[in-house]
Computed example of a mutant assay.
Amino acid sequence: MSRTLREPAQKNMGSFKELLDGEPTSAVGTAYTAADEQYTALVSGVSGKVTDPKATLDRIFATLPRLSGVKPTRPGPMGGEARCGKGETQGVNVEVCAWADHHSIGMVTFLGFPKSGSADSLFVRARSQLEHPVT
């Protein structure tokens, strides 16, 4: 876990809370560095009532104007809407994937991800580690 990058992930988490219809039932905002230190992942998410997942994603990506090629991607087994886009900040490649469904909102930001790579499959894995159905 990267304590240095945890602050931006927690800031995203706070912004997501404002997109819920009511209070969050859980929240996460943290950062991890891959074991081989090739990239870092910032993870932010909240659970609660989401009235319009598509409009929620529209609002999230509207706050990220420096991303390009934002396109739908597989949301994974929990469903909902998901999109990914690419960018660069301070010479570092960035890939952002976000999801929204009727019960959660989240985003995984990959820093230092190879330009030729695609974080889509890593996004689905990360989301499945964060989010579990209520039993």
Rank of each mutant, 00 (worst) to 15 (best):
S2E: 11
T4Q: 15
L5R: 12
E7Q: 07
N12Y: 15
N12C: 13
M13Y: 14
S15K: 12
L20R: 03
G22I: 01
P24H: 02
P24G: 07
P24E: 15
T25A: 05
A27L: 10
V28R: 07
G29N: 01
G29E: 04
G29K: 00
A31F: 01
A31W: 00
Y32R: 14
A35L: 08
A35V: 10
E37G: 01
E37H: 11
T40Y: 02
T40N: 11
V43P: 00
S44C: 01
S44K: 02
G45N: 12
G45R: 04
S47V: 00
S47A: 06
K49F: 02
P53W: 04
K54H: 10
A55K: 08
A55E: 15
T56D: 05
T56K: 01
L57H: 04
L57W: 03
L57P: 10
L57T: 00
L57I: 02
I60S: 00
I60F: 05
T63F: 08
P65L: 08
R66C: 12
R66M: 11
R66D: 15
S68G: 11
G69V: 07
G69E: 03
V70D: 01
V70T: 14
K71E: 14
K71W: 11
T73E: 12
T73A: 06
P75C: 07
G76C: 09
G76I: 13
M78D: 08
G80N: 05
G80L: 00
E81Q: 13
A82W: 05
C84M: 08
G85P: 07
G85F: 02
G87W: 07
G87V: 07
E88G: 04
E88L: 12
T89V: 13
V92Q: 14
N93F: 09
V96K: 01
W99L: 11
A100P: 11
D101I: 00
D101C: 05
D101L: 02
H102D: 09
H102P: 10
H102G: 06
H102M: 12
I105A: 01
T109Y: 06
G112K: 09
P114W: 01
P114A: 04
K115V: 02
S118H: 05
S118V: 03
S118R: 05
D120L: 03
D120Q: 07
L122E: 08
L122W: 01
F123V: 05
F123L: 06
V124P: 00
V124K: 00
V124M: 04
R125T: 10
A126H: 11
A126T: 14
R127W: 00
R127N: 03
S128L: 04
S128D: 12
S128R: 06
Q129G: 13
L130E: 12
E131R: 13
T135C: 09
